[in-house]
Structures are given as C-alpha cells and as structure tokens.
C-alpha cells in the first residue's frame, strides 16, 4: 500500500499536540542513529522494529504534590504514574497509524526475560535522554527535567519520519543546594537518605557529576516487586519451620507486594521514593508541581480573558469613534 507523504515537522506538531492533550508533559524525538550506536545489540530500536524511522519519547509527571508529604507506605501505592505514560503512548501509536497510515508500536516497558536481571527490552531512559526530555541524575540514573522534575516515560517507535531533538544542553543535576551539601558533608541528599545506601559518587570542581555509583541490586531488593517476590518465595521454601514459612509469605513487609500483585496492572513499578522525596529538582521544579502547573494554566486563562477583554474594549472604542 502506498503511503501518503507528510511534512515531518507537521507530523511532529500533531503528535505533540496529541500527547499534551492526553496529559503528557514532555515530548521529544530521539536521534535514531545515536540510539543505534549506544544501545546494546538486541536492545536497539531496529532490533524491535526494523524499519523504524522515529523514536518518540513522552513524559508524564510524577506523583501529586500531596503524595510527597505522605508516609512511605502511602507513597508506595500512589507514587508512580507510569501507567498514565503507557496509556498515552499506546494511544499515540494508534493515533499515528490511523491518522497518518504508518506503522507504530508502543515500546514494551518490560524486562527482557532472556537477558538477565534488570535488563529492559528497550531502555526508555535512553530514549528520553537522547530525545532531550530528561538527563541522568546522581540518584541511580533516574532522569530529571529542569521544569518537570521526575517523570515517568514511555516510548513509541514508528516508521513515520519526524525531525529529531537534541539531548539537553545542561543537566539539572546536581542542584546547587545539593552541591553545597556535598561540599559540606561529602554526600548529596539522595545519597544520604537512601534507605539501603545504594547511592554514592562524586561531584567535580565544576559542580558537575564526576561519578555516579548505583548498587542496583540493593535498590531493587527494596523497591522492585519483581525482584522481591521471587526472593520472598525462595525464603518461604528455605524457612526452617511453619511459623517462619508463614511469616515469609504473610509478614507485614510482604503484604504490599501481594496486594500490588493481586491488583494487576496498576501502578506497579516502585515502592521506594526516598531519593526523589529529597531531590530539590523533583520538589521545586516549577512545572513538576501540579498545583503550580494548574496555577500556570489558570494564569494563561486569566491572561487570555484579559486579552479578549482588551480586544473587545478596543472594538467598542473603535465603534464609538466611528
């Protein structure tokens, strides 16, 4: 089937409009060639969609402002919003196919079961970083955005061509206040407050990230259900007596795992957010805060109304003059 040709800039604008309308905060196109060079073999975009032309990355905001004030137990349930990003990306893939007639796929945000622990099918973080809607932080490579703070990302591959964006010119991490703390104590807030001490690293003399060390195994034990659940099951089998066995499965610390498992495809990604709770970028980036975002939108409405009134007044004045 012959496919209609579209202006790549027009297509990009249409896709971005779609994403923003559905609640996405950030939209970017990653340079395909760069990705092909950086991603490990088998995890590059063409390994998944051979004729891919464009890698779209979208970002949605993290938890609400209120959620950051909640205790860890509450935050474990409401801290992640990644399914919102997945829904938008899935919709975008359908939108591209139906609106423009080019093939698109929602990139699975899942692990590659054949490749080992913590190996994703495709790195959504890599897509977002190269697309310029996030930069790697000292907090275990969590991407941060100067305006939107911590976001959840999703990607769409399509055979429709769109012009790529550039990675961010500046990395918002480390925040100046983190540099100050680091110089005083040798630790950034995310390093200091990590419950499993999985973060370490250094900041250079130009106040840039010199080295980031991340014990992902320690972090995953604490925060990733897909890591913890098999361990809990193995502990159950290894238990010395029925009481230990029962506690391994039903102990209070494991209840949240079963609950999240039983509710299925809810917000399942993470349990622990302490590094982001203390991250000044996540907490103070203007548009990371839905309250501030709303205020900005309300301000725009006010301004639009004021502009309309002014225009109306001008017309009235003109009428009078006439």
């Amino acid at each position: 089937m012959r496919r209609e040709k579209f202006d790549p800039h027009f297509v990009k604008e249409e896709c971005e409009k779609y994403v923003k309308k559905k609640g996405g905060l950030a939209f970017g196109i990653a340079n395909l060639e760069s990705l092909e060079q950086i991603a490990p073999q088998g995890h590059n975009p063409t390994a998944m969609l051979p004729k891919v032309k464009t890698v779209i990355s979208i970002g949605v905001g993290g938890g609400t402002q209120g959620s950051w004030s909640a205790d860890a137990k509450t935050l474990a349930y409401i801290g992640d919003t990644e399914t919102m990003a997945y829904r938008i990306a899935y919709g975008l893939a359908f939108f591209i196919e139906s609106r423009f007639g080019y093939r698109a796929i929602f990139v699975p945000p899942d692990m590659d079961p054949e490749k080992g622990a913590r190996v994703p099918m495709q790195s959504l973080k890599l897509h977002a970083e190269v697309a310029g809607i996030g930069a790697r932080s000292m907090a275990g490579d969590i991407l941060l955005h100067p305006e939107f703070g911590m976001m959840y990302y999703a990607s769409v591959f399509t055979e429709l061509e769109m012009p790529p964006d550039q990675p961010m010119a500046e990395n918002p991490c480390p925040h100046p206040s983190c540099v100050t703390l680091y110089k005083r104590t040798g630790q950034t807030p995310c390093q200091k407050f990590c419950p499993v001490e999985c973060l370490s690293g250094s900041i250079d003399e130009n106040d840039q990230i010199e080295e980031m060390k991340y014990d992902s195994h320690a972090c995953a034990e604490m925060s990733q259900q897909y890591e913890a659940i098999p361990s809990v099951l193995l502990d159950t089998l290894d238990a010395k007596n029925p009481i230990e066995r029962g506690m391994a499965l039903h102990g209070p610390e494991n209840q949240v795992l079963w609950y999240k498992l039983s509710i299925g495809a809810g917000e399942l990604l993470s349990l622990c957010y302490e590094c982001m709770r203390v991250c000044p970028i996540t907490q103070t980036a203007l548009m990371a805060n839905p309250v501030a975002r709303g205020a900005g939108m309300r301000q725009k409405i006010v301004e639009a109304e004021a502009a309309a009134r002014t225009e109306h007044n001008i017309e009235q004045e003109s009428d009078k003059i006439k």
Binding site: A117, V130, R136, G140, D141, N171, Q208, E211, M212, S216
Partner: peptide, 25 residues
Amino acid sequence: LSLNKQIRRGDPVRNLDFESIAASR
C-alpha cells in the same frame, strides 16, 4: 559483571560521547 552495581563517569549519553559510552560498557 551483571547489572548489580552501575558506575557512570561524567554525563556521556547526554553529551553523545560514544567512545566513552563504549569504554564504560
């Protein structure tokens, strides 16, 4: 060797420093 402990020096992906990325694989 597995993805248990990750180390990153500088900011090579954002800077598209392919050589450095390859070296630190």
